[in-house]
Design a protein around this nucleic acid. Sequence first.
DNA 1: ACCTCTCTGGAACCGACACTCCAGAATCCA
DNA 2: TGGATTCTGGAGTGTCGGTTCCAGAGAGGT
Lengths: 238, 238
Amino acid sequence: MIPPVPAGVGGQDGRRLTRKGQATRARIVAAAAGLMYARGVAGTSTEDVRVAASVSSSQLYHYFADKNALVRAVVAYQTEAVLAFQQPLLSRLDSLAGLAAWADTLVEFHLGLHLRGGCPLGSLASELADADPVAREALVAAFARWEGAIRDGLAAMRARGELRGEADPERLAVTLLAAVQGGLLLAQTRREVAPLRIALDTVLDHIRSLVSDVVRPYPVGSASAVVTSGVPVRVERH
Amino acid sequence: MIPPVPAGVGGQDGRRLTRKGQATRARIVAAAAGLMYARGVAGTSTEDVRVAASVSSSQLYHYFADKNALVRAVVAYQTEAVLAFQQPLLSRLDSLAGLAAWADTLVEFHLGLHLRGGCPLGSLASELADADPVAREALVAAFARWEGAIRDGLAAMRARGELRGEADPERLAVTLLAAVQGGLLLAQTRREVAPLRIALDTVLDHIRSLVSDVVRPYPVGSASAVVTSGVPVRVERH
DNA sequence: ACCTCTCTGGAACCGACACTCCAGAATCCA
DNA sequence: TGGATTCTGGAGTGTCGGTTCCAGAGAGGT
């Protein structure tokens, strides 16, 4: 049940790894992850990885049974990278401001990459979902963790009464994640952030409409309470 | 400006095609499209296409300069296929019922495929956006046509007064398209429709909240007008 | 009917790529 | 310190995949 060696530290068949071995293995995975993010899994040869990681081919096959095993290590690596990167923001998702900050950070991050590459997990999923069952399972788990973090934030908002009881954190979390993935795909294709920003903003707008005790723009029967910014204004409870 | 031969009918360098030639070319593209949808572009060899289309390798290179050219033909083919498939629904997107019918059809279609493969255009985009500039341009145009059709429907709703003036058809269309792409990616990975259905439903909910003259659940200062279904109820104008 | 252009079959080429093998160097642990 | 194990370099192998070539069959226009 419990593996003899911590994940990501063992060799391909459970052999022990020396400190140096761990470093080499990590270097290979990091190099492979970078290349596969930029050129896709199929577009990355073991030779490319070999050169980028400055190792010999025997080393590749010392640490990984075959290319498939390397790909799966990359999936695990990117899962941790994506979640670790968002960690500080994901733990503050329990408010509208926190959600907005998270969305802004995603937008800024991909702007910094000039819209090259989509979501590290999304592009792996698109390429591997129907090709590698093991990788698919890992990606399902990765998305579940991501989605869970978002859901927890929304659930906390609801528990605090900031979101109305009818708001479903589970469904909203799925929608936000889909907006990220779809928005990134369109943004990557168009090489413009607009689609990502718009998709996230729109879903956040929807979540705002589920906030408790709010004066909404254009309320029924009144044309005087127009809020130009479109941001709902909280009012005194009862 | 105007090509001498209709698109998809000419040979690789503008040579004339006989009726038979057109049929063979079409057979190759259709076979390639199917394989590339199922296994990805990189996962499909020219040999695979050769066999699936029942042609010799010389025929492949008679009609296409290289694999890249074939891939680009596949992009064009899938663009037409995706838009043609949705054609009857896209032209009726100018009402909430029309939007729901469109969403349901997408869900049902991919259920029929058992969630194997995502969006034909989306998966091509994910694989080609950063690899083939020409294909990327074509995909940008394809998404623009798709998004345009959705936008036109929403704009018609707004023009008829069904959507409030503040509703932005452009932004809503982008969000819907992102929901389709992201929802499909998650659905393909999980092999469950739920993510697609939830993402689309949630964005449609948001659009419902932008419908004119509506009694919304939990209006400010009243707890009596709760609508259990969550579906807004249209009321008499003024 | 004839000539030209298009279409087709099949063999062959060549580079790339995943993977193997072995021998020597480094590391670990008792 | 010494013996067992892990790590590394580099050359080598076989297959696969994209592409080419040529010669013959077929189709189209005048």
